[in-house]
Amino acid sequence: MKLAVIKYNAGNIRSLQYALERLGIDALVTDDAEEILGADRIIFPGVGEASTAMKFLKEKNLHEIILQATQPFLGICLGMQLMCTHSEENDTDCLGIFNQKIKLFKSIDPLIKVPQIGWNEICDLKSDLFNGVQSGSYCYFVHSYYAEVGSETIATTDYCSSFSSALHKNNFYGVQFHPEKSADVGHLILQNFLTIKG
């Protein structure tokens, strides 16, 4: 299987590459349109800040290439957020694949910290992406912004309030957590993504 990881200015992707290696996949990290669209699967990673990332995607014309994808496509963390319509992070217009706006966590309890860093449960699982994953399984999250729960939500998590920990529309999937850092649960989710049908 050919798997392309979209290369842009979004943090380190070494862990993701290694996680895919553990699944027997030698991922191609690329910003080339043909290579991306010619792959069987596309992963859109992301750690960083939304406006800088969007600016970079536009400079490389990657924002249009992403919209052309018809194969299973997975956005991770900031990648998922950029697939929504807009992010409150520096008032950034995003790709608009998911009909969701990205908001900043507002904590009124000094003991509930922003960013959320750590292991939290994924519940209400509604997709083949979570085949074999039990509701309430723990995944690793690092983020200050979130998507609300809506019709495209395929997993929810509670922090400050209930938010979308995963979204799905057509061939596009997004997860707020880091499957590559989520131990056996994350391994299973990535494995499911490799076998999922569109």
Partner: peptide
């Protein structure tokens, strides 16, 4: 660090 990242799937 490289060897750890290769082997470990937690942060």
């Amino acid at each position: 660090v490289d060897r750890v990242a290769q082997k470990i799937n937690i942060p």
